[in-house]
């Protein structure tokens, strides 16, 4: 009996340790692909110029737990509200910083997502922002790094979920995270008036720890 009790205590300690490690893990929440554009865009021949605003629209092929997606519907994203604050030049690299903005995810079954040309236009961002806004959050410290020599770059920002119909699925203490994306101007599929093709993700800092239902009997049986 004493041996069983010791084994039980050791097992409990081990489970606790594993649980703590899982809580440190990050959770992939959203995977998105699309295109970006500037609005306002004081100088269309430049990207990240003074007075420009950064926007992104596209599809969301991956919506992950604790969000719930209806696979029969289309999912889209819209990044907006980011205004250029500073552009630094390091050789061929541009480092562009922005004011806070938002990233929102929508679920819709009514209108096909349509980029059009020279956004904003009659279909973009409108066909990407109709339907249910299932998640929205703030982007802060948004920074875009772009190499003009090879036409590619990336961005990253801190993200905090603040609203949407499924905000309740994310525990209050697990709503902070971050986003990053690769950007390229080398795709032949970039619609006219968009700058880059974008492929990005949103992570939550602290993944909700999945629970496993069990009974004391089952737990004890593991040690008999």
């Amino acid at each position: 009996m004493k041996r069983l009790a010791i084994a039980f205590l050791v097992a409990s300690f081990a489970l606790g340790t594993v649980g703590a490690r899982m809580a440190d893990a990050q959770l992939l929440l959203v995977d998105y692909v699309g295109f970006d554009y500037e609005f306002p865009d004081p100088d269309p021949s430049q990207f990240g110029e003074a007075g420009s605003g950064y926007n992104g629209v596209g599809e969301v092929p991956g919506v992950f737990a604790p969000l719930v997606s209806d696979p029969s519907k289309e999912h889209s994203y819209f990044i907006t509200g980011l205004l250029q604050t500073n552009t630094q030049v390091f050789g061929t690299f541009l480092v562009i910083d922005y004011t806070p903005g938002t990233l929102s995810v929508y679920e819709d079954s009514s209108t096909p997502l349509t980029y059009g040309i020279n956004p904003p236009n009659a279909t973009a961002p409108s066909t990407f922002t109709d339907g249910d806004q299932i998640l929205t959050g703030t982007l802060t410290n948004f920074r875009f790094v772009f190499n003009t020599a090879n036409g590619t770059g990336s961005y990253e920002a801190s993200f905090e979920a603040t609203g949407g119909t499924q905000i309740g699925n994310i525990p209050l203490n697990q709503r902070k995270g971050w986003t990053f994306a690769g950007a390229t101007s080398n795709s032949t599929g970039i619609p006219q008036g968009y700058y880059h093709q974008i492929d990005g993700q949103v992570f939550l800092d602290n993944a909700p720890t999945p629970g496993i239902k069990g009974t004391w009997g089952q737990l004890k049986a593991n040690f008999r």
Binding site: V95, N141, R143, V145, N147, N150, T152, G153, S154, Y155, E156, S158, W178, F180, G182, A183, T184, N186
Partner: peptide, 14 residues
């Protein structure tokens, strides 16, 4: 290409 200035150790590959 990796950006040594980023908070989340980001960059891109192509």
């Amino acid at each position: 290409q990796i950006d040594g200035l980023s908070a989340h150790n980001t960059g891109n590959a192509e």
